[in-house]
Design a protein around this nucleic acid. Structure first.
Length: 615
RNA sequence: GCCUUGGUAGCUCAGCCUGGUAGAGCGAACGCCUCGUAAGCGUUAGGUCGCGGGUUCAGAUCCCGUCCGAGGCUCCA
């Protein structure tokens, strides 16, 4: 569909002659309108109701922007050389006419030759041209978003259950929450520099931009892959423990498959598309499709519920705007643990929601993200709040601090409740980590059913949880936290179980290499990652470099240590050197990494064998 | 998409304002040193100054255009 918009002082038109058989039946007479937005509309092949809705909401936006309340829809075939059939055009135009609440809407007759005279206003927004196509959902989402803002209100809910408007809340003790709350309106940013984690992810040889790919598609070096893999393994283990069953589903889908078409209209992410043998495929932006399509093939009884499916998507794709991509914080390809629970009724859903809330809190904690590092936001419809006050209050009191609330008068998206934990970085940027949603629409959309106690077929309620949020974003959070520590005079560090090297062994002279080699073997046998700096460099330099890599334990081996069971250990936490027996040391490390996955060193053990990574 | 900013050796950057032989540190190769808890020393190799055009006797430097990156804005159900 193509629309030419002109904000006019006046327009006058006279239908003169029917042009086609399907023309509207009217009595031709001259019409005159003043201060009106004239929308010349050409309906094209392939346009459908969704396009019409999209177009209408875009025009509505323009009307609001220029402060005009009168609209003339003017069918105008000459804007396109690929027109829809007249019957379709007529149908869509009449649908559009109904889509302007509170506006005075006129339409000129379809299928007539008309003479017209118009006077266009002279301001910059007076003229505009839009092309709306079925695959372009961005504008649609903008419209939905715009609508939701108008009909939602922001509040703060405290652990004691009190709910106050944002303006009435005292943020003195909750600065980060204030930042989160004002995030939408806070336009100013501190610095014109990239966030600290971008330099860190390169320096620590974790990840880097890959210029040969699309922006927001990162490459992970051996260190980064190790860290990422450990986090992935850990989150997966925890979800399995909670009761999620791990599955694997395709990363691309046919956008013309019936179950996708309606979902697209309500799920307006920007997707990557791929044309293959006439199919228009798109890359998934979440695991939802795969799991829903799978679950729709299950024959489920209420006795099977709640039933939980889990997938760690590597990757999910969202084609975010290029200007929005930053380091590991916001990507176009990311790794997302995604766990859906199918529940028989709202009571069960709320119970399940609670279990997943605990899971998410615990997972973040074990990943090294404390509850004081994030703030909680929760969004729900007014009805849901009124029916579930106690459950909502219980979540907030578990969090223990006031939370940001967005309350909708009515349901706009497919969920009635959504909560998320947001990490607010030192620049005041908020990023969601864990999240869960109560979805009351998609079961029906995807034909996911179960049979209840009374042999009735029903649609389950679906919860969408990511206990950690995107894995890349977890790494971003850990790096930003470390950078923040460093700014406050503390030594930056990763949690020990995620450190690419846990112990660095430094032989004082070449003659101790043999002992170091054996020592590294013994340490590795205790599932501890140890490497050896066997380069011909000064002892000072090698220690300095180990410190720069944030390595927690450094062992220098000289004549004192060689052949002895006592190790001389420099602990990054204290900066001091102490003597410890091998067994005590092994115990100290395993104590700190217990219940966490382990992976062996992912680099050559000897530093002399490692290529330098210049990034 | 808009605004800002950058592109010079493998990496980080200086030089550009005020035109005149292409610079430093790190890293790499080779050699010396064989070292006790945050940078030991020397030598060598390495550059179409993003690309295209213009002005000039002469352009990394001035002008125009263009490509690519980054940050901000919009955006982020």
């Amino acid at each position: 569909m193509r629309i030419l918009q002109l904000h006019c002082d006046s327009i006058e038109y006279t239908p003169t002659k029917k042009e086609i058989r399907e023309a509207e039946e009217i009595t031709p007479q001259t019409q005159n309108l003043k201060d009106v937005l004239v929308a010349f509309v050409a309906v094209e092949k392939g346009d459908d109701s969704a396009v019409a809705r999209d177009a209408a909401s875009q025009v509505l936006e323009s009307l609001k922007k220029i402060g005009c309340t009168r609209l003339l829809l003017y069918p105008y075939a000459h804007l396109s050389s690929d027109l829809a059939r007249p019957s379709v055009a007529l149908q869509l135009l009449s649908e559009m006419k109904e889509a302007f609440p509170g506006m005075e809407v006129h339409s000129s007759p379809f299928g007539w030759t008309k003479s017209y005279k118009l006077q266009v206003k002279g301001h910059p927004l007076a003229e505009g041209f839009k092309v709306i196509t079925g695959s372009e959902k961005k504008a649609d989402s903008a419209a939905l978003e715009g609508e939701s803002k108008i009909r939602s209100y922001w509040k703060i809910l405290s652990p004691d259950g009190s709910l106050v408007n944002i303006g009435d809340f005292d943020f003195a003790k909750h600065k980060k929450l204030e930042t989160l709350a004002k995030y939408e309106s806070a336009k100013q940013r501190n610095a014109d520099v990239p966030p600290p984690h971008v330099a860190l992810m390169k320096k620590l040889a974790i990840a880097d931009y890959e210029p040969a790919s699309d922006s927001g598609n990162m490459r992970f070096f051996p260190n980064g892959r190790l860290i990422k893999s450990l986090i992935e393994t850990y989150v997966t283990e925890r979800v399995r423990e909670y009761g999620g069953y791990e599955v694997e589903t395709p990363i691309m889908y046919d956008s013309e498959h019936p179950s996708m078409v309606s979902y697209f209209n309500r799920f307006p992410a920007r997707q990557y598309s791929i044309d293959s043998e006439g199919k228009k495929l798109f890359l998934r932006f979440a695991a939802c499709f795969g799991q829903f399509l799978m679950a729709s093939r299950f024959q489920m009884s209420y006795k099977n519920l709640p039933y939980r499916l889990y997938e760690l998507t590597r990757y999910s794709f969202r084609r975010e705007q290029s200007g929005e991509l930053v380091g590991l914080r916001r990507l176009r390809a990311f790794t997302m643990p995604d766990c859906h629970a199918f529940c028989k009724d709202m009571k069960q859903a709320v119970t399940e929601l609670d279990a997943r809330f605990e899971l998410s809190r615990s997972v973040l904690h074990e990943l090294g993200i404390r509850d004081s590092d994030y703030d909680m936001a929760i969004r729900f419809t007014e009805d849901f709040y009124n029916e579930n006050r106690d459950s909502i209050k219980a979540l907030v009191s578990k969090h223990g601090r006031p939370v940001l609330v967005e309350m909708w008068k009515e349901k706009f998206f497919y969920f009635v409740l959504k909560w998320e934990f947001n990490f607010v970085d030192s620049f005041g940027k908020a990023s969601a980590l864990s999240t869960d949603q109560i979805d009351v629409e998609n079961a029906e959309r995807y034909g996911i059913k179960f049979v209840d106690e009374h042999n009735q077929t029903r649609y389950p309620i679906i919860l969408h949880n990511s206990p950690s949020g995107a894995v890349e974003r977890v790494i971003y959070t850990l790096l930003e936290k470390a950078a923040d520590d460093s700014k406050h005079g503390l030594k930056p560090q990763l949690p020990l179980w995620l450190a690419p090297t846990q112990v660095r062994i430094i032989p004082l002279k070449e003659e101790f290499y043999g002992f170091c080699d054996a020592l590294a073997g013994r340490i590795s046998a205790c599932r501890i990652r140890a490497d050896i700096d066997d380069r011909n460099e000064s002892i000072g330099k090698r220690i300095r470099e180990a410190e720069k890599e944030w390595i927690r334990y450094i062992m220098v081996v000289g004549s004192k240590e060689a052949g002895s069971d006592t190790l001389s250990i420099r602990d990054r936490n204290s900066g001091d050197v102490r003597d410890v027996s091998f067994d005590d040391f092994a115990r100290e490390v395993s104590e700190q990494t217990k219940d966490k996955p382990f992976a062996a060193l992912n680099l050559p053990r000897d530093l002399s064998k490692r290529p330098q990574l210049m990034v």
